[in-house]
C-alpha cells in the first residue's frame, strides 16, 4: 500500500462519511453543508487519482455554484435552526429508502465490480481531458447540454404559465 493508496482511502472514507451524514442529519442546512464536504472529498479523490482539472471543476461548479443555489433555496424556505420534526420520516419510509438505496448500490456494484481489475490509472491532465471531451465524448456532451437547455426552457414555460393564470384570475 503506497502513500497514494492511503490518501485515496482517506479521502474516500471522508467522502462516504460526509455523504452518510448529509442524508441522515435532521438539520436541513447542515445537510447542505455536509454535501459541501462530500463534494470537496470527491474532488480530493479526483486529485489523488491525478485528474486535477476534474477536481478543480468539481469544486468550482458544485461547491461554488450548485451548493450556493441549494442554500439559496433553503433560505427561501422556512429552514429552522435545529432539528425539526417535520423532516423526520416514519419507519416505513426509512425501510423503503434503505431498500431503494441498497438496490441501486447493488446494481451499480454488479455492473462495476466485474470490470474492476488492477488497471494503471491514466494520467488525466487537462490536455488528455480536452482531447477526450472534444473527440470521443463531444456528442454525448452536447446532447447533455441540449437536455439541460430543454429543462431550462421548460422551467421558464412552467413559471410563465402560472403567472399568466394568476394574472387572468
Amino acid at each position: 500500500m503506497t502513500g497514494l493508496d492511503l490518501a485515496f482511502a482517506t479521502t474516500g472514507l471522508i467522502t462516504a462519511a460526509a455523504a452518510a451524514l448529509a442524508v441522515t442529519t435532521r438539520h436541513v442546512v447542515h445537510s447542505a453543508l455536509w454535501l459541501v464536504v462530500t463534494l470537496l472529498g470527491l474532488a480530493g479523490c479526483y486529485l489523488v487519482l491525478g485528474a486535477e482539472l476534474v477536481a478543480l471543476v468539481q469544486v468550482l461548479v458544485y461547491v461554488g455554484a450548485v451548493v450556493v443555489l441549494v442554500i439559496v433555496a433553503l433560505m427561501l424556505t422556512r429552514a429552522p435552526i435545529g432539528p425539526r420534526a417535520e423532516h423526520t420520516t416514519g419507519p416505513a419510509h426509512r425501510v423503503l429508502a434503505a431498500c431503494v438505496g441498497a438496490g441501486t448500490g447493488g446494481l451499480v456494484a454488479a455492473v462495476l465490480l466485474p470490470t474492476a481489475a488492477r488497471t494503471p490509472v491514466r494520467p488525466g491532465g487537462s490536455e488528455e481531458l480536452a482531447r477526450q471531451i472534444f473527440s470521443t465524448w463531444v456528442w454525448p456532451f452536447e446532447l447533455l447540454s441540449l437536455l439541460l437547455l430543454a429543462a431550462l426552457v421548460g422551467a421558464f414555460a412552467v413559471a410563465g404559465l402560472t403567472t399568466s393564470q394568476e394574472g387572468t384570475r
Binding site: E52, L56, V59, L60
Partner: peptide, 13 residues
C-alpha cells in the same frame, strides 16, 4: 499546474 482554476475554485468556497 491549474492555478487559474484553483484560485477561482477556492474563492468559490
Amino acid at each position: 499546474p491549474g492555478s487559474v482554476l484553483l484560485v477561482l475554485a477556492v474563492i468559490g468556497v
